[in-house]
Each structure stands twice: as structure tokens, then as C-alpha cells.
């Protein structure tokens, strides 16, 4: 129960952060990616703000070792980049550059009630689901 509450709060913080930073707005994200146009540095500042907390935070996580509410950590062990990782990042990059939505903002934007936000999410979820089928989980 406590773990669920933590998940809910973590998701809530994420959502609030995406709204306050305006990362929920694809036009803002595309402005960052458009280095040859009127460049919008917002995303770089959002990432800097996140890492300013996340880097010392994860240092603490590593020091403590075991999560407070679970018997063992589920964080992935370190590994080398492989073809699969790079191919996935390329496909993701194309989709992100075409629309300006990555998964978090696409979910946070549902509150707008805009048909296109739901359309993107449906396509993204279909892609994820299809991959799960093909990869044969």
C-alpha cells in the first residue's frame, strides 16, 4: 500500500513538473530540437533541473543499497550499448522529432481533452503493445 502511494506521488510530481516546465507543449519541445530556427533552450533547463536532483538522489540510492519499501532494487544493472538500444533510440528520435511528444508529456497532455493528444497516445500505446507481441514476452 505504501509502495502504491509512493508510485502515485512520484507520478504526480512527474506530471506537475511536465506542466510547470511546459514540456507538455510539443511546440516548446520542437523549438528546442530546431537548432537551425529560433532555438528555445527550455528543454535543456528542464533536464538540468531534473539532473540536479536526480544525480545526488541516485548517489544516495546507491549508498543505501536496498530500497526503503522493498527487499531488493529493481534498477537495471549497468551494461554496454548494443544494436537494439541504438536502433530503438533512432526510431524514438524520429517519432519525437516529427510530433514533439515523448511518452511522459503525451500522458500529461490528456487533460487538455484534445483529440490529437488521445490520437498520439493511442498510436504510441499500439506501437508499445505491438512490440510486446512481436518480441514475444
Amino acid at each position: 500500500m505504501a509502495r502504491l502511494l509512493v508510485s502515485l506521488i512520484a507520478g504526480g510530481l512527474f506530471g506537475a513538473g511536465l506542466i510547470i516546465s511546459q514540456m507538455v507543449n510539443p511546440a516548446r519541445v520542437l523549438g528546442f530540437l530546431d537548432v537551425a530556427g529560433t532555438w528555445d533552450p527550455t528543454l535543456a533547463f528542464v533536464l538540468a533541473g531534473a539532473l540536479a536532483v536526480s544525480v545526488p538522489g541516485h548517489w544516495l540510492v546507491r549508498r543505501i543499497g536496498t530500497p526503503v519499501l522493498d527487499r531488493k532494487s529493481h534498477l537495471p544493472p549497468p551494461g554496454r550499448p548494443d544494436r537494439r538500444l541504438i536502433a530503438g533510440a533512432v526510431l524514438f528520435g524520429i517519432g519525437w522529432g516529427l510530433v514533439g511528444f515523448c511518452p511522459g508529456p503525451a500522458l500529461a497532455a490528456l487533460g487538455t481533452g484534445e483529440a490529437k493528444a488521445f490520437g498520439f497516445l493511442a498510436a504510441m500505446a499500439t506501437g508499445m503493445w505491438l512490440f510486446g507481441r512481436i518480441a514475444g514476452r
Binding site: A10, F14, G17, V46, L51, L75, P103
Partner: peptide
């Protein structure tokens, strides 16, 4: 607001890792 929003996102990621040992990866 860009930095402040980022801090909230980082905080969400850290509490999920610290308490539940999970990656806050949306995908």
C-alpha cells in the same frame, strides 16, 4: 519554471528509486 519543473521531475524519479527501487521510465 523550466528549472523548477525539472526539479519536480527529478524528485519524482528519486523517490520512486529510493522507496520502491524502480526506474521512473514512462515508456
Amino acid at each position: 519554471p523550466a528549472l523548477a519543473g525539472g526539479v519536480l521531475i527529478g524528485l519524482g524519479a528519486v523517490i520512486l528509486a529510493l522507496f520502491n527501487g524502480r526506474v521512473a521510465g514512462i515508456s
